[in-house]
Nucleic acid binder design. Structure first.
Lengths: 256, 256
DNA sequence: CGTAAAATTGAGACTGCTCAAATCTTGTGG
DNA sequence: CCACAAGATTTGAGCAGTCTCAATTTTACG
């Protein structure tokens, strides 16, 4: 049972270029187990370490007033807690959705990275860019007009993430509560439930409680881009069938 | 008329720690004028340079399908085009809202920064963190429930930005079209117009076409956090039916 | 097997969107 | 400087989609 990871192993886990040889080739990063439901860090905690998910699923959220807002569902290879680098405290809390394992990257080491040339600093840079891109995607999700679009875009993105890890992009687990997905998408759980039901009815995806099976990527993409999901044409009516989707006009707005 | 900026001047402009002495103390960054309405870079353009706003206002947006989504309103001191670092192309387009001036930071120089120790790389790191924080704020804006909350939060945030530049935090210009602000907040222009009208009616702010005057910061914050704007009723009868709908103490949802 | 939590379903209210018209602003040319 | 045209904003009415609230069903877990 290995209790630490080398920098190279960490880089591999995160799918970034492993750094060339150097004094930090000897660094070892502690592994930490996190039980299902356990909180890794809380909103407002001082930023002491960053983490990289090795196994398991997480949920990251922040609380404003009395309402919780989901902002990410980190999984294998994702960095946790990077938002804390700037402000020095964690602006979000993240908890494990399943038993999980993370590599701990102490802040002190990050500071050393910044002072060293070459790869480690660059790794951090790439991670920040990735984090940025991830947030842009969330903005993109939240910018969508209707619930079905958001739900469809969410499913496609989750599929893409699993695909990037070598798993099926069309058949993957969804360990978070639907209420949390709803919060992530800016939708009430009831609304999300209906949106999922609509996608199922249109035979675009099969959504069970803890897993998703995407049946029609193109159809989902169409819905994500604004088409409306229609509860699949009756078995009889041979009208618009093709990839199993009937679209309604989708009155499109003009640019600007 | 100065046509270039030193690294120290650039750092000052961006309000980051100026780097200590070093070989790049001699670097000069070209200034480029941008006319009102002119586009600095387009969605899909290859990433060649980053920019830092010296004067003027900008709008950054991306287009999905046929609809444009606003993602930022950069102003003095803000970095432009950083999203392109990762993917190598600009995922958004940004255009000037007014005559403006930017400092050009060529990608080649950024690459050199990465290879050098110390300050410049750290500057880039801080900028990325800031960019990240900025996106988180947008997510936070889009996560709000109703139009008045989003509008109020937007006004407060703009005020804060101007305050950080040394201007009034309660009386500042708003050079972008309302339609663009609406797009930024995920609202139709008509809806934003009504939201602004409600805030005005509640005497929380005075919103004219190109400028904003915040009258009641606390009140705005309350609305931003979920309270509903009340059309000033107070003085008279409980039949506060006047200009806008909504009073009600804001039935709050529970966490989770 | 029983209880608690989560998810679904239904009905109705309300917010934001669509469409259309009116008003106001801005920029241009005479 | 004024008139005019194009664009932006506001306002109104009606509609659609999401939210709220409540009841029911399903799932998870001791």
């Amino acid at each position: 049972m290995q209790a630490t990871l080398s920098l190279a192993e960490l880089a591999q886990l995160m799918q970034v270029e492993p750094p060339q040889e150097g004094p930090m080739g000897l660094w070892r990063f502690a592994l930490r187990g996190v039980g299902a439901g356990e909180t890794l860090f809380r909103q407002g905690d001082r930023f002491r370490s960053m983490y990289v998910v090795r196994t398991g699923f997480f949920r990251s959220s922040f609380i404003r007033g009395t309402t919780e807002h989901m902002v990410a569902f980190p999984m294998t290879g994702d960095a946790l807690g990077m938002d804390g680098i700037g402000p020095g405290v964690h602006p979000v809390e993240t908890a494990a959705l399943s038993d999980a394992q993370v590599a701990v990257v102490p802040y002190a080491l990050l500071e050393q990275m910044e002072c060293l040339h070459g790869a480690p600093g660059e790794i951090l840079l790439r991670l920040l860019c990735r984090e940025n891109a991830c947030k842009s995607e969330l903005v993109s999700l939240l910018g969508r007009r209707n619930s079905a679009s958001r739900a469809a875009a969410f499913l496609l993105r989750q599929g893409k993430r699993f695909g990037a890890l070598g798993y099926s992009h069309s058949d993957f687990p969804m360990p978070m509560r639907h209420a949390d997905v709803g919060s992530y998408l800016g939708l009430r759980p009831e609304t999300l439930s209906r949106a999922f039901a609509a996608l199922s009815a249109a035979r675009l995806a099969r959504i069970s409680l803890k897993a998703v099976e995407i049946l029609d990527v193109e159809g989902l993409r169409a819905v994500a881009d604004g088409a409306k999901a229609e509860p699949v044409a009756r078995t009889k009516a041979p009208a618009a069938r093709g990839t199993a989707r009937a679209l309604r006009p989708a009155a499109e707005a003009r640019v600007q």
